[in-house]
């Protein structure tokens, strides 16, 4: 059908939605929602009595309110649940003040800590959130309350965007970057430039020298892992450790990071990308209960 073939956008993440088959919202009490409008992707989560009911994750459009609306609509699709049944909503993330139906906007740091606590359990003390346009390192207590944090959203190095630039440069889909970077016999020296612009020219040079894509990706993934480790050192890493955000899906980064830090990140069946939205939904529940008192 397509006469004009569109240029492949290697950097694009795939979208997804999920419903928990074990929960019937009609049986539940408090229905709360969290919407995390990130720079690259937007997640909506609906919780019933503090249990995860359904979620969606999609690309953020040019308009934050619109993105929040569509993510919400998609999460609700096929559930029979409608927006008017949701008792409280918290907006979070980069576009949090623009979530039209939100009861309150809460910083993504607080939401990530709370959501990480839900996903990985109360033993989690350090959460590394690697998003599309920022990198956050959060320390929290057993209740998921923040005790220290650091956020880097100024520089693209160490963020998903840096990885996207490389995916595009090498013509490898972003979903495959991590796996491919592990297909090397020996680990090459990391790319020496921190700055993505300079790292990109360095990588072009390596390709011209005949390095295979796998080796270039390995060099970039290890540089990125190292950069994140030095960032984490500022707040300190206490076990247990967990990684959330889009980059948690990149095994090339996660493996190298774990090796350098000598920790094994906690695993969960839940999508790590929805941590912020889950935290938002949990705060929304608290806000609704407070209001009721």
């Amino acid at each position: 059908m397509a006469e004009e073939q569109k240029k492949t956008e290697y950097w694009r993440w795939t979208e997804s939605r999920w419903t928990n088959p074990d929960i019937d919202w009609k049986q539940g009490g408090i229905v709360s929602a969290g919407v995390d409008v990130g720079s690259v992707s937007t997640q909506a989560v609906i919780m019933v009595d503090g249990q995860l009911y359904c979620s969606s994750s999609m690309r953020t459009g040019s308009d934050s309110p619109e993105s929040a609306n569509s993510a919400m609509k998609w999460a609700l699709e096929g559930t029979g649940l409608t927006t008017d049944k949701i008792q409280a909503t918290v907006g979070t993330g980069y576009g949090r003040v623009n979530v039209p139906f939100a009861t309150k906007a809460i910083t993504e740091i607080a939401c990530h800590a709370r959501g990480g606590n839900f996903i990985y359990g109360p033993q989690v003390r350090t959460i590394l959130d690697m998003g599309g346009q920022d990198c956050k390192a959060i320390r929290c207590d057993e209740k998921g309350k923040v005790t220290a944090f650091l956020m880097n959203d100024k520089c693209a190095a160490g963020t998903g965007r840096g990885m996207e630039v490389f995916a595009d440069l090498l013509g490898v889909h972003i979903n495959d970057v991590g796996k491919m970077s592990l297909q090397v016999d020996t680990e090459p020296p990391p790319v020496s430039s921190t700055c993505v612009v300079f790292a990109k020219s360095e990588a072009s040079g390596l390709l011209r020298q005949g390095w295979p894509k796998e080796k270039v990706l390995a060099a970039y993934c290890s540089a990125m892992a190292h950069r994140v480790v030095t960032l984490l050192e500022r707040i300190g890493v206490e076990k247990e450790f967990a990684i959330t955000g889009g980059i948690a899906k990149n095994i090339g980064i996660v493996n190298r990071l774990s090796k350098e830090l000598n920790v094994t990140p906690l695993k969960s069946d839940l999508d790590p990308q929805i941590a912020g939205a889950i935290g938002g939904a949990l705060f929304a529940k608290v806000l609704f209960e407070k209001k009721g008192k």
Partner: peptide, 16 residues
């Protein structure tokens, strides 16, 4: 809580 504002880029660490 220790809140670190700022960034790390190629030229160094700048946090308050």
């Amino acid at each position: 809580m220790k809140a670190n504002y700022g960034y790390k880029d190629g030229s160094g660490d700048f946090f308050i």
